[in-house]
Design a binder for these strands. Structure first.
Lengths: 231, 231
DNA sequence: CGCTGTTGACTGACGCATCAGTTTGCTACG
DNA sequence: CGTAGCAAACTGATGCGTCAGTCAACAGCG
């Protein structure tokens, strides 16, 4: 009756576990019917991409499922085969963005010493700016739509924030114990960093500071660590 | 719920007491007919207050004009007597908030030396936090709904921001000339302050840091001026 | 290797609720 | 009694979700 959505079971191993066997040809065929887990996953992604573009363009409330379907090159009903509702679609989209961002930040931290708060901050902040730089739609989704849907969807934004803040707060607290950072509420300080990064990224969508992502990231690190008053 | 909803729910009796001796008494009478410029202005405010509460509660898109009318204790059509459209209503509401906030900031700066960046910052930031502390609905309107309406209404948010930033940037630039503040893009720095204040105010709606407005304001000033690294 | 039955991805029109805005009617004030 | 202030029914448009079909991709069978 209802759409299958997350098809039953779906063991993690099934990701690439399918006997690739025959199909050497491209399983991706934009207009064709999706068959098999690989193609269905591809279609799911195709819809998510379309939704991302549409939602980022016009906002969640203003966009219609018809717009999403059209952008995905599918019929209206097909979208409901993969997602049970408009909200669930947005939910899934946000989850994807969350993971991508988090991955990118971890990447940016690789090889840096977490003992040095300046290095840790710099890595995380640069990675975040770079991520947003390469994906403007994500910025809009996170800082415009996610806000707008207070309550049930703010959880995404604050989910990202909170995890980011947790990590930052830990780094800062450790640095405080070592005397590298002044005594101050670590969580509030960590939130401040996250807020600065987010707001600056959002602002960069509409305002051109004439600065590239790297410079802005360095500015944030310098501001947070050294302040505006000359040393 | 389509046909005659409340057939017999005639309001006559529900309309608070009689005008109890017209005389020079208060021209404000919630249910009464507004006559004269004073009373009409009062009714306008009454609708704006209701709209503020409703919009802050559920967001602009989700709220309906019927909700606003109900909250104002008026009929649906009456709202349209005072405002030509939902958007115009929101527009007027934002304009009011803008002016109130700006007034409050000017108040906070009174008697402080603009020559001292720390004093200027402290005055403006404290005033802003206090304003938001006393008017949570304003925070939501400004930092949630205003964002969400990208384009046509972001002008309000950025209007407030830009003016605030202009002033801050000026103070900072002057301080830079005096060597009180390091060389850095003044506008970006000013925006950072505004962003921090806004985001912290918004966060305080849902998260309890256990800090009161004054402490947070001082934290922001200290962070911006001195940074996290010990001096 | 055709033929056929079955599954399930996909289509698109329709039901139904929601709401912004309009119209019409009513009543208190001057 | 004319009109300003308001009440409430009404209209039209919009958009989410549904559902009865359609048809490609496979069996399994002979």
């Amino acid at each position: 009756m209802s759409a299958p959505v997350a098809a039953g079971a779906a063991p993690p191993g099934a990701l690439a576990g399918e006997p690739a066997a025959g199909g050497p040809a491209a399983p991706e065929d934009p207009g064709r019917r999706a068959v098999g887990d690989r193609q269905k996953e591809a279609r799911r992604l195709q819809i998510l991409q379309a939704a991302k573009s549409v939602f980022a363009d016009a906002g969640f409330q203003t966009s219609t499922m018809a717009d999403v379907a059209k952008a995905a090159g599918l019929s209206y009903g097909a979208v409901y085969w993969y997602f049970p509702s408009k909200e669930e679609l947005f939910h899934a989209l946000m989850q994807m963005e969350e993971e991508l961002l988090r991955l990118r930040i971890l990447e940016g931290l690789a090889g840096r010493s977490l003992e040095d708060p300046r290095q840790a901050l710099s890595g995380a902040i640069r990675a975040t700016f770079e991520f947003f730089e390469g994906d403007k739609a994500a910025v809009k989704l996170l800082f415009r739509d996610s806000y707008a849907m207070g309550g049930r969807f703010e959880s995404h934004l604050s989910g990202i924030y909170e995890r980011f803040i947790d990590d930052l707060a830990e780094v800062l607290a450790a640095a405080q114990r070592r005397g590298q950072v002044i005594a101050a509420p670590a969580r509030v300080a960590a939130f401040s960093v996250a807020a600065l990064v987010g707001q600056l990224a959002y602002r960069r969508l509409s305002t051109d500071d004439g600065l590239d992502a790297e410079v802005v990231a360095d500015f944030v690190v310098a501001l947070i660590m050294d302040g505006l008053r000359p040393r």
